[in-house]
Amino acid sequence: MAGKDYLNDVQACEKKPLWQRIGWLVLIWTASVASLAVFAMLIRLFMTAAGMKSH
Results as ranks from 00 to 15, higher is better:
M1E: 09
A2P: 08
A2S: 08
A2K: 10
G3P: 01
K4G: 02
D5R: 15
Y6C: 00
L7V: 13
L7H: 01
D9P: 00
D9G: 02
D9I: 00
V10R: 14
Q11I: 14
A12R: 15
A12T: 12
E14G: 06
K16G: 04
K16C: 13
K16I: 06
L18P: 01
L18M: 10
L18S: 04
W19F: 11
Q20V: 14
Q20T: 06
Q20F: 10
Q20N: 06
Q20H: 06
R21V: 11
G23M: 03
G23C: 03
G23S: 03
G23V: 03
L25R: 01
L25D: 01
V26A: 13
V26C: 07
V26K: 07
L27F: 08
L27I: 09
W29V: 09
T30S: 12
T30F: 00
A31D: 04
A31N: 07
S32P: 01
S32C: 12
V33G: 01
V33E: 10
V33H: 08
V33Y: 09
A34T: 14
S35T: 05
V38D: 06
F39W: 13
A40Y: 11
A40K: 01
M41G: 09
L42K: 12
L42H: 08
L42D: 10
L42F: 05
R44N: 10
R44M: 06
L45D: 04
L45Q: 07
M47G: 02
T48N: 14
A49L: 11
A49N: 05
A49F: 00
A49V: 00
A49P: 00
A50P: 00
A50G: 15
G51H: 05
G51N: 03
G51I: 01
M52L: 13
M52D: 11
K53I: 07
K53R: 15
K53P: 03
S54D: 05
H55S: 13
